[in-house]
Design a protein around this nucleic acid. Structure first.
Length: 501
RNA sequence: GGGCCUCUAGCUCAAUUGGCAGAGCUACGGACUUUUAAUCCGCAGGUUCCGGGUUCGAGUCCCGGGGGGCCCA
């Protein structure tokens, strides 16, 4: 069935229920009524009604006439009396009652003929309670405020996961948890913005379409700009632009926005994902780690009321207090039972990889292989929030060398429930060393590593003007939501990318 | 990239060895002036993801393709 056929009014090929709803829409028009009127003169939201009339006893009448509206989520007809449960966008529900004695036989018949579950409905009447004590509007009049042409799924069977993702609008209508996560996500982002604002960080928006994608090792999406006839890259990280800001004197700067990485999609990776990056002049990896911990704990506290959050499976997860710390090579040595350092030769690391049946890419250097071993052996065990320190220089081309340990950098990764959630650095600010590192990356790219970085001359020019000592961090917003809620990435993103139907 | 599982009515799911494509809810018609997944009576609704093949006969078996999920690399 094509969209065109679905859009016709006759709809001979439509499923029965959709055909019937189209006929009801046509009937409204034929009777001089609007199926999609401009509005409804509401006097109260459903939440306001609940609050204002909470005191009504069962069977009591308030004597107050109100007008309210919401989506019909439940209908019950009992001869000359009908019930409709309305729901507002915030999830508040309120009952409408229509009795033949109040609205008349003709209007009651119209309600039964034309109103379906899923329609938006406005009702005007007195606030009463039913015999069972349910707060209700006893309608004097009603109007359909938007006719739904598709039936809602059955309320008491969970929607298939794929349908929830592909038709999030339906998921949001029928599943309270879907509405909750959308609001929680907004609250978490709001909390992080507020905390950064309190600390005098300036929020900026840097380019998402770039001549050269930099700031991370990842494969970019390519697009084309017709006016200049050049390829542009969707950004893989805002880092190089935020550092330009620090050079320019925006000493505390952050951005919350989308990155795009042309890689796989699975339960913890989305091709587009929201990220926070923050840079603090005269900070380093320690101060920026403290900031990161505060932001996460503050968001948990303000959104969930506790740093010990309840996850989707009902278990508790404690984000409070100080977090565990370890080092990449220390934890890896422990897992292997062999002493491994940044100086361990590639051949020895390959032997360990063979022993634990880890596939090795011949392009990997010792640093990259050590990280892969770490992810394979250590990460699955990192349940409690843990900062992992001291990564090899080889894989961290934008990070300052360690102040006391040659070959290592001042970098940490933060793991929460075994998921890399944030990363932080003492930023490399020496433009000469930075050029050497980027040129080494460019040589990797020339050898066929399409995730390697390219030399960004304008970024190097900015560095040559002098960037102050700086701590920087990046944190995946989607992953933070996963950490705080225990949900999968496809639940924390409203509209994750799905293949076309 | 590899392996396994999966796709059937609006929704959630059945269908034995290859033998008339079913149920619940929803919808539709009827009864009911206090329902809350009401109850009772009645009645509809299908390109079994798509394309081939085997067969007297395919939702089921075979081949190819697509969507989704899980695991592995």
């Amino acid at each position: 069935m094509t969209e065109h056929e679905q859009n016709t009014d006759t709809g001979d090929d439509l499923p029965e229920q959709m055909k019937i709803r189209r006929e009801k829409r046509a009937a409204l028009l034929a009777e001089g009524k609007q199926p999609y009127p401009l509005g409804y003169p509401r006097t109260h939201s459903l939440a306001e009604l609940r609050e204002q009339f909470a005191h009504l006893e069962p069977g009591e009448s308030s004597g107050v006439t109100v007008a309210a509206a919401g989506r019909v989520i439940f209908v019950r007809t009992a001869g000359k009396l009908c019930f409709a449960r309305l729901r507002d966008g915030d999830g508040t529900e309120f009952q409408a009652m229509l009795s033949q004695g109040k609205v008349g036989a003709e209007a009651l018949d119209e309600f039964k003929r034309l109103v379906d579950i899923g329609d938006h409905l406005g009702v005007t009447g007195e606030v009463v309670t039913s015999k069972r004590g349910e707060l209700s509007v006893m309608a004097d009049s009603f109007a359909i405020t938007a006719k739904a042409l598709r039936p809602l799924p059955v309320a008491h069977k969970p929607l298939a996961e794929e349908t929830r993702v592909r038709q999030r609008y339906v998921d949001l209508i029928v599943r309270p948890e879907a509405r909750a996560i959308a609001r929680q996500r907004a609250a978490v982002v709001r909390s992080i913005r507020a905390q950064l604002d309190e600390r005098d960080f300036i929020e900026v928006e840097t380019p998402m379409m770039q001549v050269q994608a930099g700031g991370a090792t990842a494969r970019p999406f390519v697009t084309h700009m017709n006016a200049y006839d050049i390829d542009l890259y969707m950004r893989i990280a805002p880092e190089l632009y935020l550092k330009r800001c620090v050079v320019g004197g925006i000493d505390r700067v952050f951005e919350i926005n989308r990155n795009f990485r042309n890689e796989g999609a699975d339960s913890s990776h989305s091709p587009e994902f929201a990220m926070l990056e923050a840079y603090q002049a005269y900070g380093d990896y320690r101060t920026i780690g403290e900031l990161t911990k505060s932001l996460i704990q503050g968001a948990a506290q303000s959104v969930f009321g506790s740093q010990n959050v309840e996850l989707a499976d009902g278990s508790a997860y404690d984000l409070g207090g100080d977090w565990a710390e370890t080092t990449l090579f220390g934890s890896l040595s422990e897992a292997l039972g062999e002493n491994v350092t940044v100086a361990t030769p590639l051949e020895a690391l390959r032997a360990y990889a063979d022993k634990v049946e880890l596939g090795v890419d011949p392009l990997w250097g010792p640093g990259k292989l050590a990280e892969e071993l770490f992810e394979h052996l250590v990460v699955p065990e990192l349940h409690a929030p843990t900062f992992v320190y001291d990564y090899p220089e080889e894989t961290s081309p934008l990070t300052r060398g360690h102040r006391s340990m040659p070959g290592l950098t001042e970098k940490w990764d933060l793991y929460i429930r075994g998921v890399e959630t944030a990363t932080g650095y003492s930023e490399l600010v020496d433009p000469v060393v930075q050029r050497e590192r980027l040129e080494a990356q460019a040589r990797l790219a020339a050898k066929g590593d399409d995730e390697a970085m390219r030399v960004d001359e304008d970024f190097l020019r900015a560095m040559e003007y002098g960037m102050p000592p700086t701590g920087g961090m990046g944190m995946g917003i989607d992953r933070l939501l996963m950490a705080l809620t225990g949900l999968g990435i496809r639940e924390t993103i409203l509209f994750p990318l799905v293949k076309p139907e």
